[in-house]
Design a protein around this nucleic acid. Structure first.
Lengths: 249, 249
DNA sequence: ACCTGAACACCGTTCAAGT
DNA sequence: ACCTGAACACCGTTCAAGT
């Protein structure tokens, strides 16, 4: 083992500082306005040091995306801890997705960018493996809730459907919805929260009914469930959104 | 009116030539390998002329994406003409999506890229409007089939769901599925067709059952429907895929 | 009215020199 | 062992000159 002149903790802090600075640049000037030069001038390190952390510009973008997904996994963890039926927990995952995308609009759109060939073609293998791992973790949360549903008899899978297929369906639906609504999201911001929320509940009900996941849409008050989630497991996110709304008015 | 030295037809042909050349470059060197310089050297026109057609590099990417979506709309048109129930037609849309993504892998991934901020931030308004218009056209095909289902009593919408919401759901699901599967698509190519096809049928059945769109999954042989689509409305695409498979072996 | 390509500015990436 | 920033190569974009 060779001796280290800087320890892991300070190295990590430095990386976080570079990433935060890059995110600031993107928030102000857009993804196409991000430049390593701009980041370097706003940070007390040299260009070489930045390239010591990231193999290229796209690698930095993937790192930013991974940070965002990592925090999303945390929120999913809390969603799964919601006290309710397995179907309510699955709805909670969708609401978590929504709140997270509203609180982190800049980072969230990077999740789409990071799936784009111009980024994957250049980003380092290490960070793309990490991305894959984080996505597997997200899918794992979905799989856990599906297992709960099966164990409690609230969900019975048709013979041609595996739990993995179902979790993939749900994920694809959430991803697609938010990706396609993104343009509108950017324009309308927090104001549009309510209609997006209704869409998401409808969307979720559609698929979960299709799966025969009880209780069915018409046998439960799902808007009440969402309110209870907001009061409990998602209280921190709701408070932050409220603070944003207050600041805007 | 000022006199024109070149007519619209030759101008259009030139634009098509530039676009095809750009596509060749991307197919060979990836999106990140695309350079206006490279395109210019492979084309009998100057840089200035290329910039006369496209406001910037990203504008060219959006144009390429729009070309792809335009052809997708054609296939959707044929899918809607499939002789069968409204639910079969809706499944045909999904199969059309799949075949198109397999036949045009390079262009298809550009549909994802074109939704990315680094492209939308720079692309011209004109071409982004065109993109919006083309997407509306796609959604229109879905809406038409939904209307058919409602008119024939094969589909009854719950009071909280509008046709527009349903078509958006279906679209989001398809888009999300293909976006998330894309990485795997690139790796495995045509060989994986069969498993992707099965996923897509399952996926479609899931959502259409959720909508109470008859006939239900278990009351019909959907694989037989798909075979009939391939023999009729999608015969051209199937022949092209077969040619690719033959060439590979 | 349209085309051309030299010229410019900017930016990603490297690496020899320094500590 | 790590940091620095000058230097390089490349590329997007413009525009004066030409037809």
């Amino acid at each position: 083992m060779s001796p280290k002149l800087i320890d892991d903790a300070t190295r990590e802090a430095r990386e976080a500082e570079i990433l935060q600075t890059a995110l600031d640049v993107i928030a102000r000037e857009g993804v196409s306005g991000l430049t390593i030069d701009k980041v370097v001038t706003k940070v007390p390190y040299s260009k070489g040091t930045v390239y010591n952390h990231f193999s290229c510009k796209e690698d930095l973008l993937t790192a930013l995306c991974n940070n965002c997904v990592r925090r999303l996994a945390d929120i999913f963890f809390r969603a799964a801890a919601f006290e309710g039926s397995s179907r309510e927990k699955m709805l909670a995952i969708g609401i978590a997705y929504m709140l997270h995308s509203q609180l982190n609009p800049t980072e969230f759109m990077l999740v789409l960018s990071a799936k784009t060939p111009s980024v994957t073609e250049k980003s380092s293998q290490k960070r793309q493996d990490e991305h894959q791992e984080l996505e597997t973790k997200l899918l794992g949360k979905l799989l856990g809730i599906i297992s709960d549903g099966l164990a409690h008899g609230e969900l019975t899978l048709a013979p041609h459907l595996s739990p993995a297929q179902v979790s993939f369906s749900l994920w694809a639906m959430s991803f697609g919805t938010i990706a396609l609504l993104q343009e509108n999201l950017e324009r309308c911001g927090v104001r549009q929260e309510m209609s997006l929320e209704r869409e998401l509940i409808n969307h979720s009900n559609l698929v979960l009914d299709g799966l025969n996941w009880t209780p069915y849409t018409l046998d439960h008050d799902w808007h009440e469930s969402v309110q209870r989630m907001k009061d409990t497991v998602f209280a921190p996110e709701v408070a932050k959104i409220q603070a944003l709304v207050d600041a805007a008015s």
